[in-house]
């Protein structure tokens, strides 16, 4: 059930294009500052950079409402930034400070920020999809038009939970959008060494749901696919599987070597860096000006710097936090 791509697909207007780009720059500036801070020795964390994947959650999130929910994974800070998690508590959480989204107790792999709709970040490959179904199911039961986006990688499409989740979501027409960010590697294993199909989207056919493969680095294509899937889910039309082809520029985890990667493949992917490409397109079409984008870049850089300073200047959680939040308070019988 691959979607037909035609000229009449949804197009982002000028303001939406700028919104997508702004989210991408927030992700990129955030990534740049994170790496710099790690290199400076001021931040110690396992960092799963999503540099190169900025378009996907940005083009998805401009179609989401604040009360729509997402479930993401350990390589998910771009998804959180795109959905609107404020940078100060986000930074404080990755720095393990009490001012973080989760008081420093979750860390970068377990960020939760319900106010902005980020419900689950999981470090277990594949486990967020069943939860996304549950969130979507509850939204459907209470009659709201909220939708849930489940982000995951190509590796997760080989996990049983992916298949259980697609089956259930299709069976019950849940308002959920499965967005596979196919960055060509599952940890350090190449996609085609692990996956029996050449396109993850083909797997939608097994569950009788719409599925399509899009260029996840193309903001227009990504926007159209996301918009159509989200509207379908909101209108009761059930789930969609979107496979967004992309590439992670910095490998699995920050600090590992890239000897396992094909050098030509990596060079070709990095030549398709989505940020300068979209920038050129915005300028060429007159949607943005050099000055406007320079101002945006400057403002966002300052915002990220402020968040980083806020985080590093914050206190660690007090020792009594060690034993807090394991259980909710006892109930009155």
């Amino acid at each position: 059930m691959h979607q037909e791509r035609g000229a009449n697909r949804a197009m982002p207007d000028a303001a939406t294009q700028l919104d997508i780009y702004r989210r991408m720059i927030r992700i990129e500036r955030n990534d740049d500052a994170t790496i710099r801070t790690i290199k400076q020795g001021r931040l110690q964390m396992p960092y799963y950079s999503a540099r190169g994947q900025e378009v996907i959650p940005s083009a998805v999130s401009v179609n989401l409402n604040p009360d729509d929910t997402i479930c993401t994974i350990y390589r998910g800070i771009h998804d959180m930034v795109a959905k609107g998690v404020p940078l100060r508590p986000l930074w404080a959480e990755i720095a393990g400070r009490v001012t973080g989204t989760c008081k420093g107790k979750g860390g970068p792999m377990h960020i939760t920020h319900p106010e902005s709709g980020v419900m689950v970040t999981t470090g277990i490959v594949g486990s967020s999809m069943p939860i996304a179904n549950g969130l979507a199911w509850a939204a459907k039961l209470d009659g709201s038009r909220r939708v849930t986006v489940a982000y995951f990688g190509d590796g997760a499409s080989n996990i049983g939970a992916f298949h259980e989740s697609l089956n259930l979501a299709s069976l019950w027409k849940l308002p959920v959008i499965f967005v596979c960010q196919n960055n060509r590697y599952a940890e350090h294993s190449r996609f085609d060494k692990c996956t029996a199909v050449d396109r993850v989207a083909k797997r939608a056919g097994s569950y009788d749901m719409p599925g399509e493969t899009v260029d996840g680095n193309d903001p227009f294509e990504m926007y159209a696919a996301a918009r159509e899937a989200i509207e379908r889910a909101r209108d009761g039309g059930g789930p969609t599987l979107i496979e967004a082809i992309t590439f992670r520029f910095l490998g699995h985890v920050f600090g590992d070597d890239d000897k396992y990667m094909d050098k030509a493949e990596k060079a070709a992917a990095m030549a398709r860096d989505p940020i300068p490409a979209f920038r050129a397109r915005l300028l060429e079409s007159g949607v943005a000006t050099e000055q406007g984008l320079a101002d945006m870049h400057k403002d966002i850089t300052a915002e990220v710097e402020d968040a980083m300073q806020f985080a590093l200047g914050s206190e660690f959680p007090s020792v009594d936090e060690l034993r807090r939040d394991v259980f909710a308070t006892e109930i009155a019988l």
Partner: peptide, 8 residues
């Protein structure tokens, strides 16, 4: 997992 999401 659906129960977890529903509970959330």
């Amino acid at each position: 997992g659906m129960a977890v999401g529903a509970a959330m």
